[in-house]
Simulated scan of single mutants.
Amino acid sequence: MTSFTVSRQISIDAGHRVMTHGSKCRHLHGHRYTIEATCLADHLQDVGEQSDMVFDFGFLKEAMAAEIDAPCDHGFLAHVEDFELLDMFCPETADAIEWIRAIRQAVRQDGHHLTTETRMETKLYVLDVNPTAEQLSRHWFNRLKPVVTARSGGVAKLQEIIVWEPPHCRAAYREP
């Protein structure tokens, strides 16, 4: 069986903490994440602007910018259950319980929530999972998958997302 793949990388800077970690990752810290998306097709496109391609690199860059870079770069990634952390970001003029309740409602509905209505107007991206590299790879996979499918007319499938916590560690997610 013939198959083709294309891959694209972007890098973002983001802070996080892994609230359940038994060691140093429970502390606030940040990474320069490199995210690699790989698309797979059993044949190349045969018409239109993506003719002879699996998926246009520029389209993949646009999708990654919209789904990963714009909401997460130079922001903070947080688990919706990390009450102490969310409380730290709560605007001074807001009631913390109500503010966190609204974020939790949005996360329940969409699996994530982006806000800049925070104490220092910092970008805060709240997830329904702990922001580990493994969970981020699955989250970003699920965000990119429908975009790749739609933009390629169903020819390309998102095969894998790799999240590097440079320079030596990486986690990957791909559907079975």
Rank of each mutant, 00 (worst) to 15 (best):
F4R: 13
V147Q: 13
G75P: 02
T118Y: 01
R119H: 08
E117V: 06
G154K: 05
R26S: 07
R101D: 07
K61W: 08
T38I: 08
A156C: 06
L158G: 09
N130K: 10
Y33Q: 07
E165F: 10
E121Y: 05
T132C: 01
M1K: 15
D82T: 14
A41I: 03
E165P: 09
V107E: 06
C39P: 09
L136T: 06
H168E: 14
I97Y: 05
A37V: 09
D128F: 00
C90Y: 12
T2Q: 15
F83V: 13
R26H: 12
S3V: 05
G153C: 01
D13K: 11
H139A: 07
G22T: 01
Y173H: 15
V126Y: 02
T149V: 01
A14W: 09
I100W: 04
T34S: 12
G154F: 00
H139E: 06
A70F: 04
E175W: 09
A65T: 13
F4M: 07
P176D: 08
G111M: 04
F76W: 13
Q105I: 00
D95T: 11
L127H: 04
D52N: 11
C25A: 05
R119D: 00
T20C: 06
T115I: 03
R174W: 12
Q159S: 15
H139M: 05
E160Y: 01
L77K: 11
Q159P: 01
